[in-house]
């Protein structure tokens, strides 16, 4: 049976996870956010609501850039992982 949930799907991918975090959220802005657009925009489910604040985990990031574009409050400090790290597609 193939996975349906994003986290299980990501588990089949090849990632070279860096120690360094490449995307940070500005928690002071995010904790007041009502829209939560990043939650729906991120195809990798990297944003989650935990005890009414948003948390972000960079490990499964597919580097698509959706979160940066949808966040009108510009609360996402978006960069790419360092060269050689992050998602490594073998099919694409």
């Amino acid at each position: 049976m193939n996975p349906k949930k994003i986290e299980d799907k990501l588990a089949v991918n090849k990632f070279d996870v860096d120690q360094e975090v490449h995307i940070r959220i500005k928690e002071d802005i995010c904790c007041q956010c009502k829209e939560l657009d990043c939650l729906y925009a991120c195809p990798a489910g990297c944003f989650t609501v935990f005890e009414d604040h948003i948390t972000f985990s960079f490990e499964g990031c597919l580097e698509c850039g959706s979160c940066r574009i949808v966040c009108e409050k510009e609360a996402i400090d978006w960069t790419l992982p360092r060269a050689g790290f992050g998602i490594c597609y073998l099919y694409g």
């Binding site: 193939n2 089949v12 195809p43 959706s66 998602i87 694409g92």
Partner: peptide, 14 residues
């Protein structure tokens, strides 16, 4: 068309 297939990669792009 998908049955018995195996997921080998999940990807996203804009």
């Amino acid at each position: 068309y998908l049955s018995e297939g195996e997921l080998v990669e999940y990807s996203a792009h804009l």
